[in-house]
Computed example of a mutant assay.
Amino acid sequence: MTTPPETRPLLLAVDAPSLLHRAHHARVASDQRDRGGRPAWALHGMLLQVLEAVERFAPDRVVLGFDDRSFSERAARYPAYKAGRAEKHPELLEQIDRGAAMLDAMGLHTVTPPGLEADDVTASAATWARSHGWECIVITSDRDAFAHISDSTRVLRLINGGIGASPLLDPAKLFTMYGVEAGHYLDFAALRGDASDNLPGVAGIGEKAASLLLEAAGSMRAVWADIEHADGTTLVAALDSLSVERTGRRTGAGVLRKLAAEGAREQFEFNRSMMAGRDDLDLGLTPDVRRSTGALPLDEEAVSRVAGHLGVSTTTVLALRVLCGTTPASRADRPWLRPA
């Protein structure tokens, strides 16, 4: 008998730098300091968002990913990676560097993979959850995480308004947004490119063309195979049939020319390899041990001491209630996990 999704244990995987960046920009004017006089507005905002997420989703385990800021495998491979982004505020960087230690001291579980990013932690969390029969919710502002949406993983895409106002995306909602099956999202993103990471897309292929292409062909593996072995004949026919139905005009030949152009496939494959999160990291999670890394509830003394250092009494009270409650999270009602 299949276990209903709402009764399976739940792993909450958080892209912590996303929370810190958003909290910094929202709260920098407050100039909030902790009891040691250090900048704390981004740390406080991140903690509030973690607490809101835990209260909303009632996870059994929480893992928070951080970027390795000392070395980047992706930047070493592609020096222009993320070039063009604005310089980070020095006080934001200082809080990012303190973030993992603060959460660990509280009893939460953080992972900073050498040479990698928080995205790789959340990708590995989705794989871990599926392999252990768990559900997973990823919290991030990075669209690359959409590639990990499945029947066991949903993504809360952070937008203005925080946790409560952000959409929880499952395969059906992702398809409504982009017209792309979850399993093909990485192909879609590699075609489109990602300006925020300074990764140009395949020339002439935007979001609309990419989604139409994948709907007609099923996958880019099939597209490249048809171009290589049949000069794209099957692809053109499928695209023309679909595009005439949708727009009244044929697009197959034009799309084929763009895909067959010099460097097009190389750009696609490069983008795909850069965007794909590592999903094989050892997160240090032990699913069958109740009092293990990342498990809730946490120790009251540790939570009180660390949250209290931020100097906001209401946050300390909230942290104690949300993180140290005695009701097992796995017994909580989770109606948002039920199929629509």
Rank of each mutant, 00 (worst) to 15 (best):
L213H: 09
A195W: 05
Y185A: 10
A195N: 12
E215G: 14
V111K: 02
L158S: 09
A172E: 14
E117D: 12
D170S: 05
I205D: 11
D151G: 08
S211W: 09
S141N: 14
A165K: 15
S166E: 05
A129V: 02
L169F: 13
H148S: 14
D142Q: 04
T112N: 04
E117S: 07
E207F: 07
I159G: 15
F175T: 13
P90C: 06
I137F: 01
A189H: 11
G218K: 10
F146H: 10
E117V: 08
S196L: 05
P167Y: 06
W128K: 03
D151M: 04
V138P: 02
T153H: 00
G204A: 11
L108P: 00
L108N: 00
A147G: 10
S196T: 15
G206L: 11
E215F: 05
G204I: 10
S141R: 14
S124P: 04
L199S: 08
A189W: 05
D197Q: 11
A126Q: 02
G107W: 00
I149C: 00
R98P: 03
D170V: 03
D119G: 02
L199E: 12
P114T: 08
D97V: 06
V138Y: 01
L191S: 07
D144H: 06
A147E: 12
A203D: 14
V111D: 01
G218Q: 09
I163N: 06
G206P: 09
R157Y: 13
L158A: 06
A189V: 07
S219L: 12
I137C: 01
P200K: 04
V111P: 00
G161H: 12
R130D: 02
I139R: 00
A129E: 05
I163V: 14
A125N: 04
D194G: 10
Y178G: 10
D197A: 10
I96N: 04
V111A: 01
H109E: 00
G164A: 12
T153M: 01
